[in-house]
Measured scan of single mutants.
Amino acid sequence: MIINNLKLIREKKKISQSELAALLEVSRQTINGIEKNKYNASLQLALKIAYYLNTPLEDIFQWQ
């Protein structure tokens, strides 16, 4: 199981879903879906999320 901390980290950094989506060149709905565990981010997208949030990938998506 993967624990998804994207919403928590994004909100801590005061970045909206729309802002993050624009940086990543995806839709806001994609970010929303990832945060609600409706969609799994591809490895490429997960790495981009970590880069733009300046946060280690394993802090955003944790295996349990």
Rank of each mutant, 00 (worst) to 15 (best):
S42R: 04
Q44P: 13
Y51N: 08
Y52E: 06
A21N: 02
N32W: 09
E35D: 02
W63T: 07
K48N: 07
I34N: 02
Y52W: 10
L43W: 12
L45F: 09
E35F: 03
N32K: 13
K7H: 07
K13G: 04
T55P: 02
L57K: 03
I15G: 02
L8E: 15
P56R: 09
N5A: 06
I49H: 00
W63G: 05
I49Y: 00
S18K: 13
R10L: 07
I2W: 13
S42T: 12
L47R: 13
L47D: 05
R28G: 06
N32A: 15
L47I: 13
Q17W: 03
E35I: 03
A46Q: 11
L53E: 01
M1R: 08
L24C: 15
S42K: 05
F61W: 08
Q29N: 13
L20W: 02
I3P: 06
A41G: 05
K14A: 09
N40V: 14
L20G: 00
Y39S: 08
W63P: 06
K38M: 12
P56H: 05
I60M: 05
E25V: 07
L23C: 13
I34W: 04
Y51F: 14
E11N: 09
L57C: 08
K38R: 13
K36E: 15
I49P: 00
S27T: 10
E19I: 05
K13F: 09
L6S: 00
I34Y: 02
N37Q: 08
Q29E: 15
L23Y: 14
N5Y: 06
I49T: 02
P56Y: 04
N5E: 03
K13R: 11
M1C: 15
Q64N: 12
L45Q: 06
D59G: 06
K14I: 03
I31R: 01
R28M: 12
K12F: 09
S42C: 06
I49A: 04
A50S: 12
R10V: 04
M1N: 08
I2S: 09
E11V: 10
M1F: 12
N32Q: 15
E58F: 10
S18V: 11
I49Q: 00
L23A: 15
L53D: 00
F61N: 01
A50L: 03
A21L: 03
K12M: 14
A50D: 00
R28E: 15
K36P: 02
V26R: 01
D59V: 08
Q64I: 06
Q44K: 13
Y52N: 05
S27L: 02
E19F: 05
N37H: 10
N40C: 15
A22F: 09
P56D: 08
K12G: 12
I34H: 02
L57H: 03
R28W: 14
Y39E: 11
K48G: 06
Q64T: 10
K13Y: 08
L43G: 07
R28H: 11
Q17P: 03
E11G: 05
T55E: 10
L57D: 04
L43S: 07
E35G: 01
Q17Y: 04
L6M: 10
E58R: 12
N5T: 04
N32S: 14
G33K: 13
Q62V: 14
L20A: 01
L43M: 12
I31G: 00
I34M: 03
L45W: 03
D59H: 10
I9W: 06
S42I: 04
K13Q: 13
Q17D: 03
D59Q: 13
L20K: 00
I31C: 03
K48W: 03
N4Y: 05
A22S: 11
A50T: 03
A41R: 01
K38V: 11
K14Y: 05
A50E: 04
K7F: 06
A41W: 04
I2L: 11
I9E: 05
G33L: 15
S16F: 06
Q44W: 10
I9C: 08
M1A: 09
Q62N: 07
I34L: 09
I49S: 00
E58C: 13
Q29Y: 10
S16D: 04
T55Q: 05
L57P: 04
D59M: 11
A41F: 11
E25L: 11
A50I: 03
Q44D: 14
E11D: 08
Y52V: 15
V26K: 00
Q17F: 03
I3T: 13
S27H: 06
I2D: 04
Y52A: 14
S18Y: 11
L57I: 12
S27P: 15
K36R: 13
N32H: 11
E58K: 12
Q64K: 11
P56G: 06
E19T: 11
S27M: 02
K38H: 12
